[in-house]
Simulated assay, not measured.
Amino acid sequence: MQPDALIETARRLDALGFMPSKSGNVSQRLGGGFRITPSGLPYAALTGDALVDVALDGTVLAGERRPSSEWRLHAEIYAARPEVQAIVHTHSPRATALSCARRGLPPFHYMIALAGGDDIRCSAYATFGTQALAEAAVVALAGRRACLLANHGVVALGTTLAAAETLAREVENLAAEYLDLLGAGLAPVLLTPGEMVAVTAQFDGYGRLT
């Protein structure tokens, strides 16, 4: 694993306004644990030495800084989802706004299927940095690769760091489109379960779910 990949991902998302004021965090699975961005450090100042290696029980394995306050969120997801190799957690503005209404994204657009199902759920609310939040996220992510965190933000998973970042960006894009529809007073026409199955089959053919 190259530490620069985590740093570059965090900086790109910060530049997009997805991780303002040192919010959000990025990690990659590493052996029996994971490497994660640290707590309280501006992404512009992030270096490889500042990244923290953490075991799934929270033991710091390497690094001199404290891990992100959301290390429990990452640990619980990695423990529950062995296929996941990377996690991106953002506070991207439109998706976060939707999460503050505690609403998920229904199948108003076929790109919802990129998250692994026919909707993107919003988790139950829990205080940031807590075990309760981590557990709520795992529930909302069942059968999915992304969810909203109530009154908080977005979590996106991937078999690669690039896939997790791409999905986080797409969730923000979908949230913006959905909010624009609602703001215009329009009722989205939702795709049927059968139509979403067909979309998933198309994505399989294009290799878009890796």
Rank of each mutant, 00 (worst) to 15 (best):
L46T: 09
T47M: 08
D49G: 06
D49C: 00
A50I: 11
A50S: 15
L51V: 14
V52S: 10
V52R: 04
D53N: 05
V54I: 08
V54A: 07
A55M: 07
L56R: 11
D57V: 04
D57H: 04
V60I: 15
L61T: 13
A62W: 05
A62M: 09
A62F: 04
G63M: 12
R65Q: 14
R66P: 00
P67M: 15
S68M: 09
S69E: 01
E70W: 00
E70G: 04
W71F: 13
L73M: 13
H74Y: 04
A75K: 08
E76S: 09
I77Y: 02
Y78L: 06
Y78Q: 03
A79N: 09
A79W: 01
A80R: 12
R81V: 01
P82N: 09
V84A: 11
V84T: 15
Q85D: 12
Q85L: 03
A86Y: 11
I87D: 09
I87P: 05
V88H: 08
V88T: 10
T90Y: 04
T90Q: 07
T90V: 04
H91F: 03
S92K: 07
A95H: 01
T96M: 02
T96G: 06
T96H: 01
C100E: 04
C100I: 06
C100P: 04
C100K: 06
R102T: 13
R102K: 14
R102C: 12
R102F: 02
R103W: 05
G104L: 05
G104R: 01
G104A: 09
L105F: 09
P106E: 13
P107V: 13
P107D: 14
F108W: 11
F108G: 09
F108R: 14
F108S: 14
Y110K: 10
M111W: 02
M111K: 11
M111Q: 15
I112H: 12
A115M: 05
A115N: 11
G116V: 10
G116D: 14
G117Y: 10
D118W: 07
D119P: 02
R121A: 15
S123P: 07
Y125S: 05
A126I: 05
A126M: 05
T127Y: 04
T127F: 02
G129P: 04
T130H: 00
T130Q: 03
A132L: 02
L133V: 03
L133K: 00
A134V: 00
A134R: 03
A136M: 09
A137P: 02
A137F: 02
A137C: 06
V139S: 00
A140I: 08
A142Y: 04
A142C: 00
A142W: 01
A142T: 13
G143T: 12
R144D: 10
R144Q: 12
C147L: 08
L148Q: 07
L149C: 01
L149D: 01
A150L: 07
N151Y: 12
G153S: 10
G153E: 01
V154G: 01
V154A: 07
V155K: 06
L157H: 11
L157R: 10
G158W: 12
T160C: 08
L161I: 12
L161Q: 11
A162G: 06
A164C: 11
A164E: 11
E165S: 13
T166R: 15
L167D: 08
R169S: 10
